[in-house]
């Protein structure tokens, strides 16, 4: 065993929540729900209203996952890393930002929007709000499976770099200005992985990574993160 899954949170077309509260998880394409700060955070998140859509989406799902693992309330900085897979990243914000550049030769370029034109910035927001001091970065891959983030997180734990990681996927719909056909799900889904679970709540199960790069959850091969979430939410036999 490399790590246990101790938390699971999501914001999808079907709704938002965390694994210990509900089991009706689904991740499809369509319109995402409006995210209210009150529903996600126990204490105010000062910049939430000013964040771009990707940051609000990712921060909310990470918040649900941490709460699910009972790691959201410490109030102290802690060594937890975050890796997110994303196909489109902050493309919507890129478009919005460049709209401010085009008139008047860039005179009115928005610094507030530019700050969100790096795909990893929402991880920075999560790191600031939750006090997470581990490595944080985004992985872009052609496959919509999101498995690359899980591989990287397990690799960091197995290599002794860190003991707690958050990994998952986070994507908005491809902006209408860019006529590319997306094939992946829309929304955000994050898992909390711990080498040694901190809370006394039972983990969802154990993850293994073999030398071929195949991930196993409770002994069963996993092909994508949606499948992993569904496997976590299957009621355990009595």
């Amino acid at each position: 065993m490399i790590a246990a899954i101790t938390g699971l949170g999501w914001v999808t077309v079907a709704g938002m929540g965390r694994g210990h509260d509900r089991t009706d998880f689904a991740m499809t394409r369509g319109e995402l729900p409006r995210i209210s700060q009150k529903r996600v955070f126990d204490k105010p998140c000062p910049h939430f209203g000013r964040m771009d859509d990707l940051s609000r989406l990712g921060l909310a799902a990470i918040g649900f996952a941490l709460k699910d693992a009972r790691l959201a309330e410490s109030g102290q900085k802690r060594d937890v890393g975050i890796i997110a897979a994303s196909a489109y990243g902050c493309l919507k914000t890129d478009i919005d930002y460049f709209e401010t550049v085009m008139p008047n030769g860039g005179l009115m370029a928005s610094p507030a929007l530019f700050s969100y034109t790096l795909p990893n910035c929402f991880l920075g927001e999560a790191a600031v709000y939750f006090g997470l001091t581990g490595a944080s970065y985004v992985i872009n891959e052609a496959s919509p499976s999101g498995l690359a983030s899980l591989h990287a997180a397990l690799g960091s734990i197995a290599g002794g770099e860190i003991e707690k990681m958050i990994c998952g996927i986070c994507d908005l719909e491809c902006p209408s200005e860019i006529p590319m056909r997306g094939n992946g799900p829309v929304g955000a889904l994050f898992f909390v992985l711990e080498k040694v679970p901190e809370s006394n709540r039972s983990p969802y199960g154990d993850l293994h990574l073999d030398r071929r790069g195949i991930v196993f959850f409770n002994g069963k091969e996993i092909k994508n993160l949606v499948e992993l979430a569904q496997a976590c939410l299957v009621p355990s036999p009595k």
Binding site: G89, L118, P119, I139, N140, E141
Partner: peptide
């Protein structure tokens, strides 16, 4: 297939 890492200037 490879992957890309996006972590700003790092």
């Amino acid at each position: 297939p490879g992957v890309n890492i996006s972590a700003a200037c790092a």
